[in-house]
């Protein structure tokens, strides 16, 4: 799955977590761009992403994330590793 595909699949998750069905995200979206995206809702976001893609994301990995693109890349990596295993 490409980064674009993953971001497209992430969109409904973002919309539900941040309670905004008009929310739009791109690879360069950061927490600065989304109202209510704080450290607390980030926990719900990460857990919802884990659930949606069937992956597990470690705290150390969360700390490395800078924007939606890097989250999508991380998910892509995990999906690829999972598929190869």
């Amino acid at each position: 799955m490409s980064e674009t595909d993953i971001i497209a699949r992430m969109l409904p998750v973002f919309q539900e977590v941040f309670d905004d069905d008009t929310l739009v995200i791109t690879a360069s979206t950061t927490s600065e761009d989304v109202e209510d995206w704080d450290s607390l809702s980030n926990v719900r976001l990460i857990i919802a992403i884990e659930r949606a893609f069937g992956v597990r994301i470690k705290a150390s990995e969360v700390a490395q994330l800078s924007d939606v693109g890097s989250l999508a890349d991380l998910v892509a990596q995990k999906l690829a590793a999972g598929a190869g295993a």
């Binding site: 926990v43 719900r44 857990i47 659930r51 597990r56 470690k58 705290a59 969360v62």
Partner: peptide
């Protein structure tokens, strides 16, 4: 345990 260590969530969020 991963959620607890990462976010101090006492129980699985589900």
């Amino acid at each position: 345990e991963p959620q607890w260590l990462a976010h101090k969530v006492s129980f699985q969020l589900d």
